[in-house]
């Protein structure tokens, strides 16, 4: 397994943001981490990156304990979220140059140009981050995330803020990376259709716990408790949210 998460827990006092979560991802797989707001998806991703210290549990990446091999592991990983930003006054090119150096990329300008072209934002290279739209900022984040050809890519809502056309292009880029380079992707999204199409397997979280794991159709059957022939993650999502609202 490329990523193994065992009994991962994050407690803030009495509140468990992530509660005894275990899952694994095989090399080359795209795994969707789903759940309503506050389910613990982003906290899980932040623990996988070492940004939040777990209260209990263990993360192993590329067969090694994260805590013991942080630097070596993060050299081969990357991350993107539309909710984080870059230094606002620096241009797109300057920001990406900094990250290219952090990942020790050979011929950084060439690699950056390739990434900008891949995500269709080469015309923004000399623009300061402060002048970008949210969607453009998301795409710069994705360029950063692909700079080092990561073996494991963690994407927190990568298509948020993108219009459908750009979102489609981004998904194609990610699928191509998986197919051609064997990139393993952990993916969170609120777009259920997108998840059904992108992810071979899903971990569904609710109130910090994993409530179901499996393929989209398995998740659909498990949570709706009905025999279905097609995945219906949107329905699953709404069912979980309504149960939560009803206090069940």
């Amino acid at each position: 397994m490329l990523l193994e998460v065992s009994h991962l827990t994050k407690r803030y006092g009495e509140f468990a943001a992530v509660d005894d979560v275990s899952f694994s991802i095989a090399a080359g797989e795209i795994l969707g981490l789903l759940g309503p707001n506050g389910a613990g998806k982003t906290t899980t991703i932040h623990m996988l990156l070492g940004l939040i210290a777990p209260s209990a549990g263990e993360v192993r990446v590329f067969g090694r304990r994260f805590d013991d091999h942080r630097e070596a592991i993060l050299e081969q990983m990357n991350f993107s979220s539309p909710y984080v930003s870059f230094p606002l006054r620096l241009t797109v090119m300057e920001n990406l140059e900094v990250f290219a150096r952090l990942y020790n990329i050979a011929q950084p300008r060439r690699r950056i140009a390739e990434m900008l072209e891949l995500f269709g934002i080469q015309h923004l290279a000399r623009k300061p981050i402060a002048k970008l739209s949210s969607g453009e900022n998301t795409r710069v984040g994705l360029c950063k995330a692909m700079l080092n050809n990561p073996r494991l890519l963690l994407l927190d809502e990568p298509t948020a803020y993108l219009d459908p056309e750009i979102a489609w292009q981004v998904k194609q880029v990610l699928l191509r990376a998986q197919r051609d380079m064997g990139t393993t992707i952990l993916f969170t999204s609120h777009n259920m259709l997108e998840v059904e199409r992108m992810c071979g397997r899903i971990v569904f979280m609710h109130r910090g716990r994993v409530i179901a794991a499996g393929s989209p159709i398995e998740i659909t059957r498990a949570i709706l408790k009905e025999e279905r022939s097609e995945p219906a993650l949107e329905e699953v999502f709404l069912r979980v949210v309504r149960l939560e609202e009803a206090g069940v």
Partner: peptide, 18 residues
């Protein structure tokens, strides 16, 4: 503070940077 103001800390410390 520059990193904080630009919300860049997560980006920086999710790299191998110590």
């Amino acid at each position: 503070l520059d990193e904080l103001w630009s919300r860049n800390l997560i980006n920086l410390f999710s790299t191998p940077l110590a």
